[in-house]
């Protein structure tokens, strides 16, 4: 009997779904919230102010922004799952290093796979794939969520936060490419007649500071719509 009890305990350690998950169903209300919250009131960029650096760097054009979002999504989903699986085994003193090793390994893997099977995309993203390692959102979610929650929930949390990141990235890239280069996905949108009439592209939009200002405007709009996000002090 005693042996049996120990076994079930051990199984609990690496069980994919915690008790509450099983009762709730795969896309129950709480799980849906994990996906939808980061898109709105708990957005990693505009509310938690994480991952700003890459939001500045790769939002000059839409296409790299989208591919970068997908790469971040893959890395976040898998790193969240792996850390969550190991959460009861990781020694707490070296947990940050363990997280870094896992994230770095996944990023290198994504980079290698892209280079072999999606060569053009990997060239377009160049350095930024490597920089996913330093994206604060990834480490932030590992620390804040994956270390304390089940594997499936962590997976949803990873997808949700990456989607929140993607949403802002794509929005910023949309405005920067449209106003800075008059293009979307590399195709000219602003008609030639506008240029002839004196319209000119705003070159400033292509520089990093304007990404920050665009993010600032998005934060402004978001907080004026949802006043509970405004800090009281």
């Amino acid at each position: 009997m005693a042996e049996n009890k120990e076994l079930t305990k051990k199984e609990d350690l690496i069980l994919f779904l915690s008790d509450t998950d099983e009762r709730e169903g795969l896309l129950g209300k709480k799980n849906r919230k994990l996906l939808s919250d980061p898109l709105t009131d708990n957005n990693p960029i505009t509310v938690q102010v994480l991952g700003i650096c890459s939001a500045l760097a790769i939002t000059v054009q839409l296409e790299p922004a989208i591919v970068m979002s997908l790469a971040v999504m893959a890395v976040m989903a898998f790193s969240n799952m792996i850390i969550s699986m190991l959460r009861n085994l990781i020694p707490s003193r070296i947990r940050i290093i363990v997280q870094l090793v896992i994230v770095a390994a996944l990023v290198i893997l994504v980079d290698q796979v892209l280079r072999a099977y999606a060569y053009d995309v990997s060239k377009q993203l160049s350095v930024f794939v490597g920089l996913i390692i330093t994206n604060c959102i990834v480490m932030g979610r590992l620390e804040a969520f994956a270390l304390g929650n089940g594997v499936y929930k962590s997976f949803l949390d990873g997808i949700g936060n990456a989607a929140g990141y993607a949403f802002i990235l794509i929005l910023v890239a949309f405005f920067r490419e449209l106003l800075g280069a008059g293009k979307l996905f590399g195709a000219q949108i602003i008609p030639d007649s506008w240029y002839e009439a004196g319209y000119s592209n705003n070159g400033l939009m292509l520089l990093s500071p304007m990404a920050l200002i665009t993010v600032g405007i998005i934060i402004w709009v978001q907080r004026s719509r949802n006043r509970s996000l405004i800090e009281q002090n």
Binding site: I90, P91, V98, V101, A105, I108, L109, Q112, V113, R115
Partner: peptide
């Protein structure tokens, strides 16, 4: 425990990456 965990983790990750790199190298 910390030491053993670190050694195992690094060995597993390193061999997984080395395997992936050698498998993907010809295509790259």
């Amino acid at each position: 425990y910390t030491f053993i965990f670190a050694v195992i983790l690094v060995a597993v990750v390193a061999s997984a990456l080395a395997f992936a790199a050698t498998q993907l190298q010809p295509a790259q």
